[in-house]
Design a protein around this nucleic acid. Structure first.
Ligand SMILES: NC(=O)c1ccc[n+]([C@@H]2O[C@H](COP(=O)([O-])OP(=O)(O)OC[C@H]3O[C@@H](n4cnc5c(N)ncnc54)[C@H](O)[C@@H]3O)[C@@H](O)[C@H]2O)c1
Ligand SMILES: NC(=O)c1ccc[n+]([C@@H]2O[C@H](COP(=O)([O-])OP(=O)(O)OC[C@H]3O[C@@H](n4cnc5c(N)ncnc54)[C@H](O)[C@@H]3O)[C@@H](O)[C@H]2O)c1
Lengths: 253, 253
DNA sequence: ATGTCTTTGTGAACGCGTGCACAAAGATTG
DNA sequence: CAATCTTTGTGCACGCGTTCACAAAGACAT
């Protein structure tokens, strides 16, 4: 089966497609809500609506986990909650360390929904000596100097980076060296990590820019005949577009 | 219900693939860094490395914007910064409103990188009367009662929701009614919006769960033999498949 | 038991995204 | 001006993800 290891370490998901894995938490959330309302079973149609996806997609997703439904009835809510939780590894405890306790780091530390699903904030780490010992969300902030020890002692395998961009890579390296193999990065930085380490990023700026793109598009639809493409002035082969960068214009610093 | 031919507003992207749009901010960030270092030109290979993508992908992405490169040389940094900025709609000002000024909302309001790229925090809105007038990040928090007026007066078309999950849909509805057509949702809620309104979500919990999945898989590679704790019990009709042997969930019979 | 009705599970078609590989474009050198 | 070298732009093939559509599985009624 091993079709050679041609630099393809990403798609090694245990049979379950990555896209499906990304939706399981969504289903789990919807199922948990149903569970709290003591709803015994749910059809793929209902659950799909609650999760905001296509019902066929949901059924196919579940088919990767096995056949847990009953034709003519639907899925047993409690049973499915357990199966998905187990598949996602939420039946065990995941100690998490947050590095960079500033605006965002503190907000995350204070976030209640964190611990609600197997994730536990095991440590808060910051480079500012003045913060050492200060309690944030009931947890004393520890200094970066002890990062390695803190990670090891707590068995942390998931790290959250909320430092300024400039420090992100360095912090990442230290986390990895200490044994962290999964990183959630909030800093707008492209992190470089060794194979075997997973990195996911949350980038507010990118999200806003994507929204702006579509927003501009919508605005342009109304005034299609408007001055849509006046500025370009493509540098044609004839005219060299060397350093005389004609009209760079606006530049956000 | 069944064969309801629902419209497909998603693939309305004017020629530019959605995946490409999502990467443009990444390129822009790398290019801005180069620009600040006064680097005149850059090759697709260098830029791709800086942005953390494949060079062929980058070239194809740029090809959707037009042919802005020079063979044998590369791309003019300033020129490309301008082109991408224009394509993303960042040459104009985007007033943004944040609703729900708690831990997260306040952190976002204080976030400097926000305004650095055409986005301006035009208003902070919260339902707590006690917060009205309180300055956060130098901006006075306004009450939800005035939401409609605030959105209109400031020409806000992008709204950020950082309220508790239970209030998200309601807030969303009010924002849309007031004229907002793009929403960035931080609440773990599936928002329902009319056609023409874009919603993007940032979900910390989902990201962590995806990481946990892969983390568990990595751990499982070493030792496949493990003893799961005490799974719920529930007898399945037939002994369907049992690779993991344990059946869970209580049947409320 | 048998029939009907509901809903799952999935085969198959399709479209999108990715990455390879290379011809062409243009810079550069002699 | 011709030869050479560098790097773009893209045709093409492939794999993943999505969706449709339907046979089969099972619940439920008679
Ligand atoms: N605040 C937001 O809403 C927001 C939004 C999107 C992205 N971000 C990104 O998240 C990161 C944090 O943002 P913030 O607003 O909380 O910044 P902040 O300045 O408030 O906090 C950064 C914290 O990191 C600490 N720090 C600096 N270097 C460190 C190091 N080497 N090791 C450990 N800790 C270190 C600082 O002492 C500080 O406490 C930034 O990269 C920012 O771009 C923030
Ligand atoms: N804090 C985090 O790190 C974090 C992480 C992931 C997700 N979230 C989500 O973000 C949201 C906010 O989290 P938080 O920690 O800031 O919560 P919070 O309780 O600190 O803040 C919520 C704020 O929303 C306000 N609010 C409540 N109902 C409102 C309404 N109808 N209209 C306007 N404002 C209203 C409250 O007054 C409060 O100020 C939650 O949905 C949470 O699940 C937070």
């Amino acid at each position: 089966m091993a079709t050679g290891r041609t630099h393809r370490p990403a798609t090694r998901s245990r049979g379950i497609p990555e896209a499906t894995v990304a939706r399981l938490p969504l289903y789990l959330r919807a199922l948990t809500a149903l569970s709290e309302r003591s709803v015994p079973t749910v059809s793929s149609e209902e659950l799909a609506t609650a999760a905001g996806v296509n019902s066929a997609k949901l059924r196919k997703d579940f088919s990767y986990l096995g056949s847990y439904g009953t034709r003519g009835v639907g899925y047993d809510v409690e049973y499915l909650v357990y199966q998905i939780s187990r598949e996602l590894g939420l039946t065990q405890d995941w100690p998490v360390a947050i590095v960079g306790i500033g605006n965002l780091g503190a907000a995350l530390a204070n976030y209640g929904g964190f611990a609600s699903r197997g994730f536990r904030v095991a440590a808060l780490i910051d480079a500012d000596p003045a913060m050492a010992g200060t309690p944030v969300a009931g947890i004393a902030v520890q200094h970066t100097d002890d990062l390695d020890r803190i990670i090891s002692e707590n068995g942390v395998s998931i790290g959250v980076i909320t430092t300024p961009p400039g420090a992100a890579q360095q912090v990442c390296d230290r986390l990895v060296a200490a044994g962290v193999t999964s990183i959630l990065n909030f800093a707008p930085t492209v992190l470089s990590v060794p194979e075997g380490v997973d990195v996911r990023k949350v980038d507010l700026s990118i999200e806003l820019q994507i929204l702006a793109f579509h927003e501009q598009r919508k605005a342009g639809e109304d005034a299609t005949a408007e001055d849509e493409g006046a500025p370009p002035m493509r540098a044609t082969p004839a005219g060299r577009k060397g350093p005389d960068g004609d009209m760079p214009a606006v530049m956000p610093a």
